[in-house]
């Protein structure tokens, strides 16, 4: 089992990350440039990080950037790695990593559906996955307001007694 320190120095040497940190017990965070993600994932997979736990995205609306997060896990070392890269929010294009981790396919579809990030090379990207007949901006973007959407689409109940008065019930119980 490699120690955390040697792993961090390995990563620093091989990936030349912009920044590394240790956010939690046995967890390493590394920020790389977007074009370095592919190489970094391939390198880490060879180092024993064989499992892609999750691929997700963060919307930094103030910086006008999306941050893609790849979390890998090594079952031999018991270490999680967060690999992060920022891409432009206005031009959210990225390449797929399904050639390295085939399991990323559905995560990419999900990120595309919820954030609108397009992964070139993932052929199923444009099929709807979770949402059906969606007619607004991707819902997990920060500028999407679910309350307003809900109010406009799904009417609320005006008062609590309405149902009781409608059915004429409520008195006998």
């Amino acid at each position: 089992m490699n120690s955390m320190n040697s792993m961090i120095s390995d990563i620093k040497a091989a990936l030349s990350p912009l920044e590394t940190s240790e956010p939690a017990f046995r967890q390493i965070a590394a920020v790389v440039k977007p074009d370095g993600i592919h190489g970094a994932l391939a390198y880490l997979k060879n180092k024993g990080f064989t499992q892609l736990c999750i691929l997700t995205c963060i919307d930094w609306i103030e910086d006008s950037q999306f941050e893609l997060v790849y979390i890998l896990f090594s079952w031999t070392d018991g270490i999680h790695i967060q690999l992060r890269a920022r891409i432009d929010r206005e031009k959210p294009f990225f390449t797929t990593v399904t050639d390295i981790f085939p399991g990323a396919r559905y995560y990419e579809r999900e990120v595309h559906e919820f954030f609108g990030v397009e992964f070139c090379g993932n052929e199923d990207l444009y099929k709807p996955l979770f949402l059906e007949l969606w007619d607004d901006i991707p819902p997990l973007r920060k500028d999407f307001d679910p309350q307003a959407y809900s109010d406009s689409k799904f009417p609320m109940r005006e008062n609590a007694n309405e149902f009781l008065s409608m059915t004429g019930g409520g008195d006998d119980e």
């Binding site: 949402l131 607004d136 819902p139 999407f144 679910p146 809900s150 799904f154 009417p155 609320m156 109940r157």
Partner: peptide, 8 residues
């Protein structure tokens, strides 16, 4: 306040 579920 969910965008995916109905209220009534």
């Amino acid at each position: 306040d969910s965008y995916a579920t109905i209220n009534r």
